[in-house]
Structures are given as C-alpha cells and as structure tokens.
Amino acid sequence: MTRWMRHRLFLPVVSLVALILVNAIARPRFVQITVRDGELYGALIDILRNSAPLMLVALGMTVVIATRGIDLSVGAVMAVSGAVALTIIDGSSDPGNVGTVLVAIVVSVLVALVLGAWNGFLVAVLEIQPIIATLVLMLAGRGVALLITDGFITTVTSPPLKYVASGHLLGLPFALFISVAAIALIALMERRTALGVLTEAVGINPEASRLTGVRSRGIILGAYVVSGTFAGVAGVIYSSNIMAADANAAGELIELYAILAVVLGGTSLTGGKFSIAGTVIGVLIIQTLQSTILFLGVSSAESPVFFAFVVILVVLIQSPRVYQVARRMTGGRRHHPAPEVTTGVEVTS
C-alpha cells in the first residue's frame, strides 16, 4: 500500500481517468486535441469549457456543505441572474458594447449575491433548516426569472457576451479561466487563511465553535453569499453559452449535480472537512460522464439508467465498507483487516 494510493483523491482521480480511457478506447477521437485558428479544439476541451457553470456552483456548494448546510436554490439563482443580465443587454441601445455587457454582468451577479445573502440570513440569523430555507428561493426564484423575461426566452446578439462562454484566451476557452479563477479564489480563501479551519469547525460542531469564540453566524452567512454569487456567475455563463435567457431550463437540477460532485469528491454531507480538489474532480467526472453517454451512443431512454449505474459504481469504489469487504475477500491481511483499513481511511479522509 503505497502512500499515494492512500491519498483521499486517489479513487476519484482513478474513476475520472478510467472514464476517459473507456471513451478513448471506444473512440480515439475523444482524446484528440487539434489546433484550429490558434485555438485548441477537442472533446476534452469541450468538457473543460462546459463544466464551468457546474464547477462554480459545486465550489459554492462545497463551502455551504462544509458548514453543515445545503443550498438548493443555486439553479433558480442561475435562472434569475441570466434573466437579469440578458434583459439589461436586450433593453440597451447598444447590445454589442463591452461596457453594456460588463454592467449587465455586474448587476446580475450582485442580484445573485443578494439572493445568497437572503439564504444566509434565513439559515444563520433566523436559524431555519438550510434545506427549507433555500427551498423557498428554489421554488420562487424561477418564477421571478420568468417574470423578468415575461415568460419568453430572451435572445440577444452581443459579441462581448458570447465571449464569456464561447471565447478563447491564449488558445484556451475563456470559461476555463473563470473556472480556474474561482477554484484559486476559494482555495486561497479557505486554505491560505484561517477561514477554512473555522468553516470546518463550524461544520463539525457549531455550538462548540461558537463557545470557543468562532463567529459561526458570519461564516455561515458568508458561505451562502459565496454560493449565491458563484451561482450568479454560472447563470451568466449558461446564458452566454446559448445567447439566451431560458428561465425554465437554466440550471435545472444543477443543485443535485453539484451535491453529487461534492460527494464524489469525498466531502461528507454531514459537514466539516471538505476537499476543494475533490469537488473539482467530481465536477469533471460528471461532465465526462455526460460526454461518455454521447460518445458511446447510449440511447436517450437508457441514458439516465447508464448515468445512475456509473455513479453508483464510482460511489461504491470509494466506499470504505466495500473496500474493506473486498480486501477481506481477496484474503489480503487476514489477521486484522478491519481496524487497519478503517483508521487508514479516517486519517486520510
């Protein structure tokens, strides 16, 4: 048992690599990356670009889950921010103006920030259960988005907005840079300051951390603000990708995929310890899996089952209990298998 195999990201990374390998074997085109007009192009690049909205939402979700919370409203917040941004651009006299688009993006992300603060207020100050507190916005938000767009899909022609999701910088998709910036920001905030430790403390035992002087209320509120803001940016990317504000479809079910990404990355839903790198891998697994469905040509009717099957497989591979049983069955270290493995997993998780 080498050390790197015990690393908590080992199994998620193995799952991701395995998925990519399956695709590459089925269709070698999958791993092919070509340069077209100075821009990188290929299925893997598409995965990195398309994962941006889920990446942002899942990062926000990681922080919220670390505080023992959950944010179900992210999809609705995406719909609202997209609706706000495109309504502003659509209503302006010059939709192609960079300034107009920047204003629209800033306003829509600020709206999302306020929505996140509202969630945080309900959870941290009024102490409503997170699942219920964020459910309010999950149900109401999409209605608000529909009101903003008048029930229609708002379509715009605006090259600067298109750049957000479809543009390239240094040959790579611009959306990828947004993802990386968000990852770096969260990593810096949580891992280079005491904030990460405090967040985990709040998640492990809110009462104890409050008694030791941690201002848990502010930390919880902050987590929902981050989640809301990131969902707002995700909404802008989503709208930019299709150049339209689709209040019904934007961010539909993304809350569940984000939770799935967090869990696949090894963060427990019970709060406390969290892994940013794990979430990143989790998002990439989900996105790759969606491409896999296309590349293997799984039919529409079968694809949800296929998706569920692979997810169960990945979760099973990562389950300590399954690991333990497998070890026992293969007969390795027959003498004291259970305690050895259990402590190993606990130390690394």
């Binding site: 085109r29 299925a43 598409d46 398309n50 689709d246 479809a249 296309l294």
Partner: peptide, 22 residues
C-alpha cells in the same frame, strides 16, 4: 446518431457538440 436535447437550447448545443466531436 440520435440523442435527447430535452427541447432546450442548452441541451441542443451540448448534444450537437458531442456529435461534432464524435
């Protein structure tokens, strides 16, 4: 090939991207 795009723009775009890569 044939795949569901759920009647949405985003779905249509993602599935078409996949087809084009394939």
């Amino acid at each position: 090939d044939s795949q569901t795009g759920e009647f949405t723009r985003d779905g249509g775009k993602k599935v078409m991207e996949g087809f084009l890569q394939k």
